[in-house]
């Protein structure tokens, strides 16, 4: 960023090199880089799925059903309906990554608005919002997700909404905490004395400073959202057949664990790797961006 511009009032007051410095530190964190590489790999597979997948993920070929992995033409074998496992896993990544990002997006918007309002206005606004958050936290996370999706009706989109709502409280808390610590800082008071409106102060001045802890939370949240949505699909509350969703793939093949281990095992490994990627990256980011939360 331009050094001279930071001095003017309409620029975020963070040190100019903060993000560049953080990135440099991140590249030196081996675990975080492994996580980033895993995520990048799955992202590339997801984006270029139609080019990279050897077959159509939903086309059945009954004569080739339950072909074991490493067979000619089927690197990871086929499932109980003769669909190519590799292609289904590649396409499954598309769904899981979209779920992760969209769910966290929903949480961020909801939690961001609530946390910002609670932290900025304080008083009764804060008390009411935090009471709602506490009540939501009184529900065990998984149960809340399952119930919301059961009420809305089972579908992939509703699963994302349910996960987004259930995860919202933690973002509201993180953002509220940062806002409270920034609210009384000199630069905010200075802006306020210049007559900047509340909305502008909230979104343009304070919010960028809540970014670091939020990024950490969001990275870990994507991994958790992927796990939750796989669980929902496994229970029949998320993706519906024949969608190549990883959790659903495991659910619909569970009766074949005696005969075809790979149909159950491989999608699980895909989930594990993706979530591991986000957790590794999230842990690394936490160490760098949010030293207070380090465990």
């Amino acid at each position: 960023m331009n050094e001279t511009k930071t001095a003017t009032t309409d620029e975020i007051p963070a040190e100019p090199g903060f993000w560049r410095e953080s990135w440099y530190q991140l590249t030196r964190n081996r675990a975080a880089m492994v996580g980033l590489v895993i995520i990048a790999l799955f992202a590339i597979l997801a984006i270029f799925a139609p080019l990279l997948a050897p077959a159509d993920p939903v086309v059945q070929s009954i004569s080739e059903r339950m072909t074991p992995p490493l067979s000619p033409g089927y690197l990871l074998g086929t499932d109980d309906l003769g669909r190519d496992m590799l292609s289904r896993i590649i396409y499954g990544g598309r769904i899981s990554l979209v779920i992760g990002v969209v769910s966290v997006g929903i949480s961020l918007v909801l939690g961001g608005i609530l946390g910002l309002a609670a932290g900025y206005f304080g008083g009764w606004t804060d008390r009411i919002i935090m009471r709602i958050i506490d009540i939501m936290l009184a529900f065990p996370y998984i149960l809340l997700t399952i119930v919301i999706v059961a009420m809305l009706g089972p579908s992939l989109f509703n699963a994302m909404v349910a996960i987004g709502i259930s995860q919202m409280p933690r973002y509201a808390r993180v953002i509220r905490a940062s806002v409270i610590s920034e609210r009384e800082q000199d630069y905010v008071l200075a802006e306020r004395s210049l007559g900047t409106s509340d909305l502008e102060l909230m979104f343009r001045t304070i919010l960028p400073n809540a970014l670091a802890p939020t990024i950490v939370q969001a990275t870990l949240g994507v991994g958790e959202a992927i796990l939750s949505s796989a669980g929902l699909s496994f229970l029949g509350l998320g993706a519906q057949p024949p969608t190549p969703e990883w959790g659903l793939m495991i659910a619909s093949s569970k009766q074949f664990i005696t005969t075809a281990w790979w149909i159950v095992t491989l999608p699980g490994i895909a989930i594990l790797l993706t979530v591991l990627g986000f957790n590794l990256l999230g842990d690394g980011l936490r160490d760098i961006l949010d030293p207070r939360m380090r465990d």
Binding site: T265, G268, I271, V275, L276
Partner: peptide, 22 residues
């Protein structure tokens, strides 16, 4: 520990059944 928190529980359950029961 990191692998443990990244694993889908239902998948682990099925793998355990596959290995130890079947």
């Amino acid at each position: 520990a990191l692998v443990g928190v990244s694993m889908p529980v239902f998948w682990l359950a099925l793998v355990l059944i596959m290995v130890f029961s079947i």
